[in-house]
Design a protein around this nucleic acid. Structure first.
Lengths: 200, 200, 200, 200
DNA sequence: TATGAATGAGGTTTCATTCAT
DNA sequence: TATGAATGAAACCTCATTCAT
């Protein structure tokens, strides 16, 4: 067996089980069974149950960040970048439902996770958004009074809530593309009609 | 002791403890201690630990919905309504940090909570937003192509993520009013400059 | 309310509940409810849960012994006495199913009950049987080699097992009279045919 | 350690503890200690406390039935069979006091045990007796008017009550052989003197 | 006497983790 | 490396009993 093959199997199994049951309701024995290894084997690769969770987050978030950054690198227009980010985020959630559920739940799960662990990967991901905003402000496409630190959270939150909805509901009313376009349009142009805009 | 006084004490204690430790890491004995009652007393008022959580959510969400609805009733302009909603949401979080944390965590906590319990209260809260949007569309202030079902999630998600940030970070860079104004401005007007808007 | 009225109510309720659930699975609160009194009231009349059980046994066994003794007093023939005892025993069980169940279960329940409590009432009851035997031996009706100490247990055991069966099975195949006659005939005449008897 | 060795140890320990304290007053921790295993280990072999009790009953009754049946197979005369059964029963009780106590107590313990669990093993055991009776009736040794269904209970009850007495009293007045002979003689020949028999 | 809310000791059971093989 | 039987700490919850009213 290839080095790390078993480790990978355990991580995949954990994602499945954590997504299905939640971290606290998941049993090490269940992960072991799902991974096809013995309970004890897990402790050869991970320090404890919580360590598996952290590892999933670190590893997968790293991959996601890589992917999103490289995809966005080829786009110049900040507007397109934002819309693309929205599409990528929702697509990734769609393609990795289990992982998405784990990250979503555990991201809030324990204060411990968020407070102690001072989530660098998460910050890096969200900072892609503020980077886009700053770029757009520099090129005069985005308003100067937009505070990137607020925007990044608002934009991420919007996408994240949409994702949660999709994870919970088996069938979607809207396509990913539609949702991504709608959400970016909210943030880019707002929801006012032209008349309303002029009158304000 | 007044009827219900002890029940109330237990609920307040639970909010504190759940916020501090998370639901699964909270111990009944700790809640009892915090409430100044015996462990067993808790079971005179609640069926089990989970029942406490549900009760907190139901009760407090109910109160919040009441408050928000009545506050918004006095406002006509949909734009103001939206901004006011943002402000109220962030204020409520600020004023009830522990409760906010519990609701935030538990809202995602267990799939169980969200799937089984079919969160009516939560839906009711979020639907306040879509109601505002529909009102604005009817009066021609908001664009017709805005999908209220997507908007409500995006707007709530934005506020919610902002709240999470505030709950986790002891000190805020921005005032509530600033954040509320920024976020509503994103959604109302977008972040494009006038030039960018015209060129698009 | 008459003195002792409430005490009586509690005892009756306890018999019902103990019979239904068994001593250990019975709750004081359930007895209280069945008796129509408050939980605390029970402790005005009894020291503890176990005390209720003991009291039931003492009290009811006393009454039964009285009744059986007085009924048998009018019979001379030891054979008739034995058969009458059997009939009375089975009838009493039939008429007081709940009580019978409680006594039967608790008679074996805890060694505690039997060992510590050195069941005088029970001994007195069983000794009615050995009394009959000794009487019969004195009058030459019963064989001299019969050991009354063994006989009393065998006879009581036979009736008791029959009762248990009846308590457990809702419908009886045999009438009480039939069973009483059969059982006494076993003990009086045995089950051998005349041929078998002569050949032995 | 041999497979099942630990399971066996737990069962033996449980028999000891149940006999000493009764089922409800026995603590899992006590059984574990007696068996020399950790509390949790018990749950690797049994679902719960009650399951241990059931297992003891099933397993041991099965063994007893085997033993008694095979011993009786070598005897032809129904009279001898009956006497032998009595002797075996009392001997088994004598040799397995703890087990006997557990079975005796739990056999009556909870209605649950008797009603829900539909005691097949127990029925099988008692039916050995009715089998003997029917055999004896077929060969003309036992009277035709004897109802085997009543007899089996009467005979078993007699032995069982005798056993209970022995379990409770440390020292026996009579030998097992004596008791077995007396009891079978009651049932075979009755207790009437020849004169009384002829006069009746 | 009567109440019933409150107590809190304690038991069953679970499950992350260990370690001998 | 891998196993999985064994561990044992610890938590939820029950319920007999108390006591202020």
């Amino acid at each position: 067996m290839r080095q790390g093959d078993k480790r990978q199997k355990i991580l995949q199994a954990a994602i499945k089980v954590f997504a299905r049951k939640g971290f606290f309701n998941s049993r090490i024995s269940e992960i072991a069974k799902e991974a096809g290894v013995a309970d004890g084997t897990i402790y050869l690769y991970f320090n404890n149950k919580y360590d598996i969770l952290i590892t999933i987050f670190e590893k997968e978030m790293g991959a996601i960040i890589q992917k999103v950054k490289s995809e966005l690198a080829g786009i110049d227009d900040p507007r397109k970048k934002l819309e693309r980010f929205a599409y990528l985020h929702l697509s990734l959630v769609e393609e990795n439902r289990d992982l998405a559920e784990v990250i979503q739940v555990e991201l809030r799960q324990s204060t411990k996770f968020m407070k102690e662990y001072r989530n660098k990967k998460f910050a890096e991901y969200v900072n892609i958004i503020s980077g886009i905003v700053r770029g757009g402000q520099a090129s005069g496409v985005f308003r100067q009074d937009v505070m990137p630190g607020i925007f990044k959270r608002a934009f991420f939150g919007a996408l994240d809530e949409m994702s949660r909805f999709w994870i919970l509901s088996p069938r979607k009313k809207y396509s990913i593309a539609t949702a991504a376009r709608q959400i970016s349009s909210f943030f880019l142009e707002g929801i006012l009609t032209d008349e309303a805009r002029q009158s304000s």
